[in-house]
């Protein structure tokens, strides 16, 4: 047998092993219920509950920002992000959080915001009246 075939077989075997182990790193977007049940680190996608309190007071803790989101099943929970409050947070259409449930709160270490595209409102490009 040619050496190249041996190598090819080794690499394919390695690829299969890697793919099976990589599956552990992947998951579907979880809901709060899933997250409480498994207790593992998960990604949750949801929408900001704009009527609920958003709390960030750096004087107390610059790494504590809390707010409420509704997950895809409509379940609303409190989220604690261990970081500062990002700009444009209120405008976000969708929020993707990485973290885990701790008691009733979802403690997130990473957050991705999806913001609406800029060109929705006419006001955006109408010149402001001269001051």
């Amino acid at each position: 047998m040619k050496k190249i075939y041996v190598i090819a077989i080794v690499m394919i075997a390695a690829a299969i092993v890697l793919l099976t182990t990589a599956a552990e790193d992947m998951s579907t977007y979880a809901t709060f219920t899933d997250a409480s049940r498994s207790g593992e680190r998960v990604k949750i996608a949801g929408q900001l509950s704009k009527d609920k309190e958003m709390y960030y007071n750096p004087q107390e803790d610059p790494n504590y920002f809390s707010f409420y989101i509704r997950d895809t099943k409509g379940d609303e929970r409190k989220v604690v992000l261990l970081s500062e409050k990002p700009q444009d947070f209120e405008l976000s259409e969708q929020i993707v959080l990485t973290g885990q449930m701790k008691g009733d709160e979802f403690v997130a270490t990473d957050m991705l915001l999806k913001c609406p595209s800029k060109y929705k409102d006419e006001e955006v490009y109408i010149r402001e009246e001269a001051k």
Binding site: L18, A22, D25, M26, S27, T28, T98, D110
Partner: peptide, 16 residues
């Protein structure tokens, strides 16, 4: 079908 995501990408790529 529910889309799959990598929970923590950075360690995922690093370890391979």
């Amino acid at each position: 079908f529910e889309g799959r995501v990598i929970t923590d990408p950075v360690p995922h790529y690093n370890k391979y």
